[in-house]
Nucleic acid binder design. Structure first.
Lengths: 231, 231
DNA sequence: CACGTTTTCGACCAATAGGCGAAAACCCCG
DNA sequence: CGGGGTTTTCGCCTATTGGTCGAAAACGTG
């Protein structure tokens, strides 16, 4: 029973969320598109394996985030002998444009080309995971360059979530969590003018990129300030 | 390269969060405790497999929730030939007390006995996952009986989270999400008296048990009511 | 230098979360 | 049968967070 690793590597380009795919040359599923990955070797764990396999496609140092997504294990998910797949979600910041081989290119995740095997469902799962985690983690910063404007960040959130996000609100929410740190610099305005935007960087004030924000907090977080009672 | 499935099946008992373990009789790691599971067969996917394996230990109909946790794949995680493990998180409501084989019993997750292989880290991961998801999903109901009092639910949340939770706040938060539905009945008070507690059931008003609650919502959720501006 | 454009900021409102304390509804005991 | 102990439930208050709008700031261009 074989085991392979696959990665849905996502990035934001303009207003769309894209995934890195390569076109199969040989059967089975020739000319269909599939996710990068390959066989797990006996001397490596799945994380090392996916990094090794991705290194054949892109510069892995440009990956801002990699996490396990899920195991896909339907017995007939690939023709022939049975292969179990461990799928990963990978993210690339929008400022880098990695060199990719000639059989590889980026595709909008909303209208995918003809996909091989069960890879379309893996992409959908990755998209859904990213969307969910944007709400309650700091994963959004993994989509942006090291220095960014609020507008850019908002556009990335909008692309990944699929709906419009307010820059005002986004800035307030993130800065209240102490995640935004102004660099002091500004970005030049666009071709149609406008006020130059301030640059920010992600501030890891003890908060890891993937730490969730609790909703039911331990007691005493946010000091009582008391006084509820009577007169 | 082998593939096995393992499950950390958790339940709340009194004030502690427990995990189901069985004691190994044979080498390797004889007399150490390990998670239920076993080899993945070629004709089943991992979800079917873990259900089949668990059926040998408990009545699987008593499981209120099963989800993939992560893949554990360190090359040396078990002695001998390499085995990759897909780990699951399982939950059992506190009202059922499943029959278990004689080699199997429940253990507090905070001070685990001598564990086999990497199973201790799987349990820790399961604990952490449950704690995180309690904040932003409805997974808490999977720990409780079909009908429950707020105090019972609070105790379960406290046990799983490791800190005190207020019954007042819990009730308000959950009922605002339309998740609590009064049954009309009441539970008899404890041996030391007290007001009888009202019984509730989980109300799936279109909300699945595992659906997350968004933080950054689409625009227009919670109608504008406008008016912000000046005079 | 008026005008369009984009960013940024402040004000306001709604929704959510947390914290008492009082009232309600039971028990037991004298 | 009434007082004390116990537990639940509810109302009120406050703090925090999220959402929207409009004005002001800071550019470009004609």
């Amino acid at each position: 029973m074989g085991h392979e690793v696959l990665a849905a590597v996502l990035r934001v380009r303009g207003a769309s969320l894209q995934v890195m795919l390569w076109e199969r040359a040989r059967e089975p599923h020739a000319h269909r598109w599939s996710l990068p990955g390959g066989e797990l070797r006996v001397d490596e764990d799945v994380e090392s394996s996916i990094r090794r396999q991705l290194a054949e496609k892109v510069d892995v140092r440009q990956l801002s985030h990699v996490e396990q997504l899920a195991v896909f294990s339907a017995p007939d998910r690939v023709p022939g002998p049975r292969v179990v797949a461990t799928a990963f979600l990978g993210l690339v910041p929008s400022d880098v444009d990695p060199e990719v081989p000639s059989d590889t290119s980026w595709h909008c995740t909303e209208k995918l080309p003809a996909m091989a095997f069960d890879h379309a469902s893996i992409v959908h799962r990755a998209r859904h995971r990213l969307g969910s985690k944007l709400s309650y983690t700091n994963l959004g910063f993994a989509l942006a360059p090291p220095e960014f404007t609020i507008s850019l960040l908002r556009d990335h959130y909008s692309a990944a979530l699929g709906y419009r996000v307010s820059a005002t609100n986004l800035q307030r929410v993130l800065s209240r969590r102490l995640l935004l740190e102004p660099t002091g610099g500004t970005a030049p305005p666009g071709p149609s003018g406008g006020r130059p935007a301030a640059l920010f960087r992600f501030s890891a004030k003890g908060i890891k990129v993937t730490d969730p924000f609790a909703v039911l907090r331990p007691p005493g977080s946010g000091r009582p300030a008391g006084g509820g009672g009577t007169t």
